[in-house]
Design a protein around this nucleic acid. Structure first.
Length: 450
RNA sequence: UCCUGAGUAGCUCAGCUGGUUAGAGCAUCUGACUGUUAAUCAGAGGGUCGGGGGUUCAAGUCCCUCCUCAGGAGCCA
């Protein structure tokens, strides 16, 4: 026997049911009355459609029920689908029966303007509004595109642990938790080191999971809990790594363009900007980028003894901050990869450039339109002695890294990988102004509710 | 953590140099309308002006302090 749910009707499929009856289940997004007419904007998670109740067509009880409906009341509506030029979706439903699941009272989010703080307090309800709904559908597409791309290109998903005995990179601050009688455990800030071990077992792998950073970041592009995909590939050098990063980004953007036209329209996204995202992307070495900053008189802002000072020309060896990255990206309509950063500002596991000992084989991909850093990656140090030297230099607990050093003791090979922030990617593609809008329940420095 | 800014009705805000009973739009409730889609029209209810302390004949308004929130910086995906 066929499962009952398989016969359910959904608003996104309404064009298939023109001139026939459907049973819709959903919530009242809005309602207006005009005498003998009641217009119900019905939302079922797949879309929204206007259901028209005309007093002359239904029983008095059904009409009374229609009038009783409030914003976000839950209903089952039986009606016939009719093409209508006046409807934004092209179709309307003429109501025949209404069954009320629940009448909602005093729904806090009205169709008018609200402030960010208020909406964040009601995030669990805010997700129902059309803009948030559209963003979440794009997010789901981005995640699906990521997995599709890797799964169909020889990669195996191989997830890394969330609970770890120590810091992966040693730099960022970590969330600490008790771990039975074994002291402290930490929530992972990156799955990369474990992904390297996985890559030595399966060749090309990717981890997909949450990452946790206890940094006191308070900006529109930071979360304390975010999702990250991290591919790691044996025998890939930095160039292979950058090529893969470009191919992945192009695939994701194309997939969203193909799948989410309606959502991008609701978000008023300039689609031509996304259609321009084709290979090759721009690439600049750190040296070239520094020269550009110097030529264009972009200073380094730095705090010296508590005072902020501007340093011109931009000194070689300093990491780029948002002002530098934004200045560089203003000239580009496609992402730009900056590679070969000074070793001092980058993580211990990155491989030195054999052509220049001062830099490491690292790369960051910056997105245009103030999308910021969406990818960070590198070729990994594969020499045991050099890696150990770096671990000691950073004062990392050597004993915690023995398993990681084993990867350089037993069949060490050149290998590379990168991390892509899912929310950063969704923020750029949707054009959302704040990263908190692109994850269902954002975790930020001053917010853990709802 | 540092810098800057904000807190007045359920929501978004106005409120002058301190001065009578603190206002508007939306939302809610009642009524009218067969084409609304941020409907319109008529009417009604709705306030510890973030908390505490102070100055003053008089404080939403000035001062002190605490709390909450937002934006930016650094760090990073």
């Amino acid at each position: 026997m066929e499962s009952r749910y398989k016969s359910f009707h959904y608003i996104e499929d309404l064009s298939k049911y023109a001139n026939s009856d459907v049973i819709l289940r959903g919530w009242v997004a809005n309602k207006t009355e005009k005498g003998k007419l009641v217009f119900i904007q019905l939302r079922d998670g797949t879309g929204t459609v206007q259901c028209v109740t005309f007093k002359g067509n239904v029983s008095e009880e059904v009409f009374a029920n229609a009038k009783k409906l409030t914003q976000e009341s839950a209903v089952k509506i039986i009606g016939s689908v009719r093409a209508d030029e006046r409807a934004p979706s092209g179709f309307e439903v003429d109501v025949k029966e209404i069954e009320i699941y629940h009448i909602s009272t005093d729904y806090p989010i009205t169709p008018k303007d609200h402030g960010d703080a208020f909406l964040m307090e009601h995030r669990h309800l805010w997700l129902r509004s059309s803009r948030q709904h559209a963003i979440m559908r794009v997010r789901a597409s981005v995640i699906k595109a990521i997995k599709d791309y890797f799964d169909s290109n020889g990669f195996k998903q191989m997830d890394s642990p969330m609970l770890t005995p120590s810091a992966c990179e040693g730099t960022s601050t970590l969330f600490e938790t008790k771990y039975f009688d074994m002291g402290s455990a930490y929530l992972s800030q990156s799955g990369q080191l474990y992904a390297e071990a996985s890559a030595m077992a399966l060749g090309r792998v990717y981890t997909f999971g949450p990452a946790f950073r206890a940094e006191l970041s308070k900006t529109r592009k930071h979360l304390t809990e975010f999702w990250m995909v991290e591919p790691e590939m044996a025998f890939f050098d930095l160039n292979d790594d950058m090529d893969l990063a470009e191919d992945l980004v192009v695939y994701i953007v194309e997939y969203v363009l193909k799948t989410n036209r309606k959502e991008l329209e609701i978000l008023e996204r300039d689609i031509s900007k996304l259609e321009a995202i084709k290979r090759p992307f721009y690439r600049l070495s750190y040296d070239e980028a520094v020269k550009w900053l110097q030529d264009n008189k972009i200073p380094l802002k730095k705090k010296v003894d508590g005072k902020e000072v501007e340093i011109l020309p931009f000194p070689w060896g300093e990491d780029f901050g948002s002002p530098q990255e934004e200045a560089i990206m203003e000239q580009f309509d496609k992402p730009c990869i900056i590679h070969r950063y000074p070793a001092e500002v980058k993580a211990f596991y990155m491989k030195r450039d054999p052509d220049n000992e001062k830099v490491v084989l690292a790369m960051d991909m910056l997105a245009p339109e103030k999308g910021g850093e969406i990818i960070g990656g590198s070729q990994r140090e594969d020499n045991e002695d050099l890696l150990l030297e770096r671990i000691r230099h950073e004062n990392l607990p050597e004993e915690d890294y023995q398993w990681y050093l084993d990867l350089r003791r037993f069949g060490s090979v050149p290998h590379s990988g990168f991390g892509m922030g899912v929310e950063r990617m969704v923020k750029w593609i949707t054009g959302a102004s704040h990263i908190r809008e692109v994850i269902p329940f954002p975790r930020m420095i001053y917010r853990i509710y709802p």
